[in-house]
Design a protein around this nucleic acid. Structure first.
Length: 380
RNA sequence: UCCUCAAUAGCUCAGUCGGUAGAGCAUUCGGCUGUUAACCGAAGUGUCGUAGGUUCGAGUCCUACUUGGGGAG
């Protein structure tokens, strides 16, 4: 199970790989499409995801636990069957909610007490609870339960936090091994990815990376970035930390990011990404193109008969004009959101395909430079 | 014909005891990084129906007129 990742080729630090799972093989570098509650927000179906070339979907442990419930989903045969999606699913552990719901939680050695954002009731989640929920969901990849300290956190806060997250990782590993051995487990070959933390302190990050690498998990993530630090700080952390994660295991940069972030991170040895940007920005009318971002709500698109991006093969661009999509947004029509989300997801998945091709052909650096230059043109 | 109510931002309307105006929506423009987000933020816009009067000072009080709503005949 631990040899499920194949590193196919390196081009500088950029890596081409293949991740083999019980739900099929995916090509890296890849982007995971974020469907927190088991759905991509913006009325995007799993059929849509297949049509736009999505390889893997991401859902959230905490959100599915508090609404509808992981035990019910287990009775349905797991999240794959529940949402009718047979490709890989990665579930985030609920660790990010320790950060994003900070005002409603209390952290202890055993785990974290949350207040549900839905009805305010108390929920306790520790490593074991998170693994049990993810096991019930039967996702392809389960993420370790971690704490994500804010970028501006003091060293004095970060170090003990990282050490606790590390102890939680041992407990996650033991628990998932136990759960994978049970008869009624949905996915007995569920993979566990560990998470590196340490805010912007490279020495803490590196020490942590070395230690968690010894666990020989099927994959590793760099977490706690894009939470308030500058892009330069983020790139610096990746550059210094990634080399201390196992070469023959996938590296996942959690929650990142913009197309430029992804291009830079691939160049520093990252294989997997996820981000709410394409879906959230799509819902808000901000659309990605090779020439920068456009805000379809802007008045200048009111009579623009062109597609969002000339030559784009997404369902929105193949058929509709900017003027029409702007009209839909202004009118508050759901179709407007949907078309924009489809475009952005297509753009991201297609970007990853372009990246993989460039690495395959040994021209990644050049590809990255040209792409970044294009993004700067802005507003075409 | 009379009585009565209303007239303030593009729209719907607040505006205290008289001290030269403000909300929502709309418009325009931003922001969003393991989703508490079809969200959040900022900005622009006024002959306060017209003409007089009272007053140091009127969106506010008085008079007439105009337009609109309701009622009586």
């Amino acid at each position: 199970m631990n040899s499920c990742f194949k590193l196919l080729k390196k081009d500088g630090e950029a890596r081409r790989g293949e991740l083999v799972t019980v739900h099929g093989t995916v090509q890296t570098p890849l982007f995971m499409n974020v469907g927190t509650v088991g759905a991509i927000k913006g009325a995007v179906s799993t059929e849509d995801l297949e049509n736009i070339g999505c390889q893997i979907e991401l859902s959230n442990t905490y959100h599915l636990h508090v609404r509808t419930g992981d035990e019910l989903i287990k009775r349905f045969g797991g999240l794959h069957r529940f949402m009718s999606w047979d490709r890989p699913i990665l579930t985030d552990s609920g660790g990010f909610q320790v950060f994003s719901l900070a005002s409603m939680r209390k952290i202890k050695e055993e785990g974290v007490t949350f207040r549900s954002h839905i009805d305010g009731h108390k929920i306790f989640m520790g490593p074991e609870e998170s693994m049990q929920i993810q096991s019930n969901l039967g996702s392809t990849i389960a993420m370790a339960f971690d704490e994500c300290p804010p970028a501006k956190a003091e060293r004095e806060y970060v170090l003990p936090s990282v050490q606790r997250t590390e102890r939680w990782l041992y407990r996650c590993k033991a628990e998932i091994e136990r759960l994978n051995g049970l008869d009624d487990t949905v996915n007995k070959r569920q993979l566990l990815f560990g998470i590196n933390q340490g805010a912007v302190y490279n020495d803490i990050r590196i020490e942590n990376a070395k230690r968690i690498s010894e666990l020989d998990l099927p994959g590793y993530a760099i977490g706690g970035l894009a939470v308030g630090e500058t892009h330069e700080e983020m790139y610096d952390v990746i550059e210094h930390t990634a080399p201390f994660l196992p070469e023959n295991k996938p590296r996942y940069l959690m929650g990142v990011g913009t197309p430029a972030n992804i291009l830079e991170a691939v160049d520093r040895g990252i294989d997997m990404f996820d981000c709410v940007y394409p879906s959230r920005n799509g819902r808000h009318g901000h659309l990605y193109t090779h020439y920068g971002k456009i805000n379809i709500n802007n008045a200048k698109y009111a009579e623009d008969d062109r597609p969002i991006e000339e030559g784009c093969q997404c369902p929105a661009c193949r058929r509709y004009s900017r003027a029409y999509i702007r009209h839909l947004h202004k009118a508050g029509e759901m179709l407007g959101l949907r078309l924009c989300v489809l475009h952005n997801l297509y753009f991201y998945n297609h970007l990853m395909e372009e990246i993989r091709n460039a690495i395959d052909e040994g021209r990644y650096k050049q590809f990255k430079d040209v792409f970044l230059e294009g993004l700067k043109q802005d507003d075409k």
